[in-house]
Design a protein around this nucleic acid. Structure first.
Lengths: 224, 224
DNA sequence: CGCCCGTTTGACAATGCTCAATGTTCGTGG
DNA sequence: CCACGAACATTGAGCATTGTCAAACGGGCG
């Protein structure tokens, strides 16, 4: 199977021979949708890069509830913190689609990392961004209510796509889990946002009608 | 003023001459209680180490609510992610006590970092732990209720002190903010935990009476 | 002694969750 | 091509947890 480590963005600027060395230590695996890649508390023996597909990272509670922390796509890596913390995975990972992953074993990766100080810096940058995102998540959960979180999320999607009309790339149950709520609540909030003509939505096709108000809603300036 | 960079734990194992170089780029400042060190959205021009005192890192909402993310003490560093993300600070920092901080300017620090690849690894380890902590916080906020969060926090304090009796080192308003709630709610939850004889509390002196139940409560197995 | 801050308590409101029922969509197979 | 089922989505009713507002309390310090 093709390894194509250079498709992983944190490695894209590395020299060809270094990339080849990387490829020597990795192992490529396919995962079908719904397949669990690792579970919370599994020993963190390495990290993964995504060649194809999408992966959700989530925490689940004893009572079966689950909160999606992040969804990663092609070119991204995940669980990299396990390499340096030397601890168990703090969350679980499952494939959302047919996915192809490269696995980097912890020890061989660390050995190779020693040869390339620049890569350490790249990783430090990556982890800084991760930390920032998590801080943002904490802020949203504790300081904002569901409508604000949804507004923020939609605005982000709009920004990423560059348009004010786009498709949700996950179903609404998962979106609820990503926003730290449940499908029923999400459904009702969407309803209200439609009624207030902030957005229009049909299936997974969303259109932002009133960016201004959405923005104020996201910042907590006003309430639905 | 004494710089004593070796008192900062991530630097403690560095060679004396390297430490001296560090000290050349740093600058030491005193902060009185309540003094703001930086605010969210300030440009992240470097990071801080704590020689003396304690610092709270927090997010605040437009409406004046605040959520404490972390409280750091002597030997710890904070805001280190700003060095690598090259972005603004995602949260604010304020001194809780009379504090003495060493400031490491971003650019000179990065230059020095290049000379010492091991330090990069140490930092990667540190940031991995930070990330893990934040993931834990997200889990608690979205998957657990206030009694569970309080129980978990008290058990942690008990663990850290090694005893089942200890003092809260912050007042209850701040504890509430750290747990992602408000003083009124915290007060009521403490009340219930006393009534159920899980803990006893007098002023800031806490005693854990029923570790077993506290643990189940923290894990969400049962409810108050 | 009296003030101030932090804490506690009470009454109330609201946000979001639970449970249950009904709708919708879409793919499969008759 | 239509019918059926499964998964997802929506809606309603009721309730639990937590936040809001207001008042009273308490302890420490000038």
């Amino acid at each position: 199977m093709q390894k194509n480590v250079e498709k992983i963005s944190i490695f894209s600027s590395l020299s060809p021979e270094y990339i080849r060395k990387m490829e020597n230590i990795t192992q490529v695996t396919k995962y079908s949708p719904g397949k669990v890649i690792f579970m919370e508390n599994d020993p963190g023996t390495g990290f993964y890069g995504i060649l194809e597909g999408r992966i959700k990272i989530y925490k689940s509670s004893p009572l079966g509830k689950e909160h999606i922390l992040h969804i990663f796509g092609p070119g991204e890596v995940f669980a990299e913190a396990a390499v340096f913390a030397g601890r168990d995975f703090p969350a679980s990972a499952t494939a959302l689609e047919e996915s192809v992953l490269v696995f980097f074993p912890r020890d061989s990766f660390r050995a190779l990392l020693g040869e390339n100080p620049d890569l350490s810096l790249t990783l430090l940058g990556l982890m800084s961004m991760r930390l920032r995102q998590m801080v943002g998540k904490v802020e949203e959960l504790s300081l904002k209510e569901v409508p604000a979180r949804l507004a923020a999320h939609l605005l982000l999607l709009g920004d990423n796509s560059g348009k004010d009309e786009f498709q949700l790339d996950i179903n609404k149950s998962q979106l609820a889990s990503l926003l730290g709520t449940i499908p029923e609540t999400l459904s009702r909030v969407i309803r209200r946002m439609k009624d207030e003509e902030l957005i229009s939505i049909k299936g997974n096709r969303v259109k932002l009608l009133d960016i201004q108000s959405l923005d104020e809603l996201a910042r907590g300036v006003f309430r639905l």
